[in-house]
């Protein structure tokens, strides 16, 4: 904790692990850190695979460092549902900044926990915040619910699309497009880039959202760096606005507290029932069809009335 505040990389890295692993005492550490946080703005970068998000993050980070920011990057990749392991390869595209002073990059696996990604990423971002990183970029692959969750932790979200992904925009409409504060059309030198931008424009027009006062779509080329500068401006500008949007701030705080309560209850339920013979007999009842899952759940829920499971006493 103290090391983190003193901006020691190793101490920060270990704190992040502790938070990520929910190592006993992590909550105390977060409580102690909280007063030292609140200075960092959090930028979310998401979109379908193959969009060049990591290269774009690399470029954005380099530009932000040039402006004098200390930048933390959280690069999130999915865990394997089979082994629970993960292949985290995002930082390989972040070489320009991987040894730059004032940059801390951390790869994170989704670990498939229930709504946990958002909280985990938020906690890690907070640790970076406390260690003096005033901007935190969270990069995720936008394919599943976990990634959509990220919006809850970020002050501003950029959705990255590329031309040539077939029905990409179509697919985006269904999910992550709704969470975007800005849209990035990366690899804008490729054929079809204008079409993607036009599709997004049409979609925005249909949504009825009033975007007349601000630019929403940014063409970039993360290889040459073209277009990254205006995008950086826009992201910083939108992130700064959040401070002046008290409803969004309190909505997020409410969501976070509720989520922590939910998760803790869920954890206690599982821990409490794990060894309880009543769970076993309920399961057996369902399996042998003497009972049904609904009645079994109802019966177990009865235990919570007395709070014996929830409190674990």
């Amino acid at each position: 904790m103290r090391g983190t505040l003193a901006r020691e990389p190793r101490a920060l890295a270990r704190l992040v692990s502790g938070v990520e692993n929910r190592t006993p005492g992590w909550e105390d550490a977060m409580k102690a850190l909280y007063p030292h946080t609140g200075k960092a703005r959090i930028l979310g970068i998401t979109g379908p695979p193959g969009g060049g998000k990591s290269s774009l993050t690399n470029r954005l980070t380099a530009g932000l460092v040039d402006r004098g920011h200390r930048v933390g990057v959280i690069a999130i990749d999915p865990s394997s549902p089979f082994s629970g392991g993960a292949l985290l390869g995002d930082r390989l595209r972040m070489r320009d900044v991987s040894t730059a002073p004032g940059v801390f990059i951390r790869s994170m696996a989704t670990r498939g926990s229930l709504g946990g990604l958002c909280q985990g990423a938020r906690d890690v971002a907070r640790a970076l915040d406390a260690a003096g990183y005033d901007l935190v970029l969270i990069e995720t692959v936008g394919v599943g619910q976990d990634e959509v969750e990220i919006v809850k932790a970020a002050d501003v979200v950029a959705v990255v699309c590329v031309p040539g992904q077939g029905d990409g925009v179509q697919a985006l409409k269904a999910g992550i497009m709704e969470i975007a504060d800005v849209y990035v059309v990366n690899k804008a030198d490729r054929d079809g880039a204008d079409q993607v931008a036009a599709d997004i424009g049409a979609m925005l027009a249909l949504s009825g959202e009033d975007t007349t006062d601000r630019e929403m779509v940014f063409p970039t080329n993360s290889l040459s760096g073209e277009g990254v500068e205006p995008l950086t401006e826009a992201l910083l500008d939108r992130a700064a606005r959040v401070e002046h949007a008290p409803e969004r701030v309190s909505e997020r705080a409410r969501e976070e507290v509720l989520l922590l309560v939910e998760r803790e209850i869920a954890r206690r339920v599982r821990a409490g029932l794990a060894e309880d013979p009543r769970l076993e007999s309920a399961v057996e009842g369902v399996v042998t069809r003497r009972s049904d899952p609904y009645s079994a759940a109802e019966a177990l829920l009865g235990l919570f009335g007395r709070m014996e499971v929830v409190t674990g006493e």
């Binding site: 394997s80 082994s83 392991g85 292949l87 985290l88 390869g89 696996a109």
Partner: peptide
């Protein structure tokens, strides 16, 4: 090795 350790349940940071 990166694939193998992932399938053995490790989180592998592969940097190319």
């Amino acid at each position: 090795i990166a694939y193998g350790l992932r399938d053995a349940g490790f989180e592998v940071i592969y940097t190319g």
